[in-house]
Amino acid sequence: MNGWRGRTAVVVTALSLAVGVAACDRTDGSGSDDGGFAIGLLLPANGTSRFGYFDKPLIEKKVKELCGDCAVEYANAGGDAAIQRQQMGSMMTKGIKVVILGAVDPMALRSSVEDMKEAGIPVVAYDRLAEGPISGYVTFDGAQVGRVQAEALLKGMGDKADGGRIVMMNGAVTDPNARWFKGGALSVLEDKVKIAQTYDTEGWREENAHTNMSGAIAALGVDGIDGVYAANDRIASGVIAALKAADVTPLPPVTGQDADLAAVQRILTGDQYMTVYKPFKPEADAAAAMAVALGRGEDIGGLARTTVDSATAKDIPAVLLTPVSVTVGNIKDTLVKDGMYTLDEICSPEYRTACDKAGLTE
């Protein structure tokens, strides 16, 4: 899939064991260690995104557990690759020993990753695999994400799953994860449905998804769409807004990804069929453990038990985690049980009736 190959499966339990062993090997009961250093944390979006709200505090917490004297230097790019390149350069002047990078644009960050390598600073790619000499990679198995989305879409389409017409609203063409998700989805969908229209969503932006979906509706008609593969929840939001603006009723099933709170609430009201929940803690824990180990000059083979290839590098040590499909029937047993959201957060007054109907407030 465009140079991406996961060679073995890694389960969360194995990851948890490996992270725990690393912590025991290098820290005492107080969490102190044999020398601290600075870890750069560069994330693609601001504090209102999943990266700021979940990933950042989880990574910081795990770093502190593994290396009590380590410091985390954080910056977010606000979705701007040019800003992130500047932040990468700034990190190099601050004496950073290792960087965790959630790339805005994996291709655009290649030269910055190369500069880091030349300066002797390992880079751990987080959630998206940046091009260049990456030292480690943590993400969820993208092919499995796409398969989970596609399988749910077919289920939501019911008797139209055999031969029905769908629109594919993929992610940004510059993001290799988008190709990964698409490939996984197509492996399920190609022999089952007719893909009537397909789009790449520039920047994963909601407004671009809205524009593309409006074009699909104009081409296919309000009754010509039986399902929509939307690569993530932001895209799903734009898709659903366009469907509603065109008075498409009933709404076809629409997929998503990331378990955004707004998406969970759309699932409750029936506007969105599903989302993909990627438990952020094991992803954050793995990245923190890799960064601490690399900062100490240690081998990460005990943490990264698989490898992937990018367009520019082969055999990158990687952790590929398992995604979870969320529909209206398992919100409580997944997102609420794991503490991602409370019932009060999900079931705000506007959604109280929908929560009652779904059995969340019983």
Rank of each mutant, 00 (worst) to 15 (best):
E206K: 14
L58G: 04
W204Q: 12
L320V: 05
A241H: 04
L268S: 07
F181V: 08
L320E: 13
T8I: 09
V328R: 15
K61Y: 05
P252T: 11
I83D: 04
A150L: 04
R26F: 06
G156M: 09
A304D: 03
C347R: 07
Y273M: 09
V173W: 08
S30C: 07
Q87R: 13
C24N: 10
W180C: 12
L129S: 02
G171Y: 05
G184Y: 12
T334I: 03
G203N: 12
G29A: 14
C24T: 05
R110D: 03
V19F: 10
V264C: 07
P317W: 08
T13I: 09
A262V: 09
A103E: 03
Y277K: 03
L42H: 10
A291R: 00
S237E: 13
E298V: 00
N330I: 01
I225P: 08
D105S: 13
G163D: 08
G6P: 11
D200I: 02
D258P: 01
G40I: 02
Q149F: 06
P133T: 04
Y74L: 09
R147Y: 01
F51D: 11
V308Y: 09
K182E: 15
Q84N: 11
F37V: 12
G184C: 12
D162L: 08
L153G: 07
I134V: 15
L15Q: 14
M168I: 11
N2M: 14
A259R: 02
A313K: 11
T255I: 02
D159F: 05
V328T: 13
T334G: 07
A259F: 03
N330K: 09
G163A: 11
G227P: 03
P323Y: 12
A150K: 02
Q197W: 02
A22V: 06
T201W: 07
M1Q: 13
E202Y: 10
G203S: 13
N330C: 07
M157C: 10
N46P: 11
G146Q: 05
P176M: 14
G270K: 03
A218M: 07
A18Y: 04
G31F: 11
S310C: 07
I83T: 12
G163H: 09
V239A: 07
Q197S: 09
D80Q: 14
I225E: 10
A125N: 04
Y277V: 04
L189V: 03
K97Y: 05
A172E: 03
K117P: 00
A77C: 13
A143D: 07
K337V: 00
A231D: 13
E60A: 12
I59V: 15
D344M: 04
E206C: 02
K194M: 09
P349I: 06
G156R: 06
E206P: 00
C355E: 06
N46S: 15
P323G: 11
S310R: 07
T13V: 13
M88D: 12
A172P: 01
V336A: 06
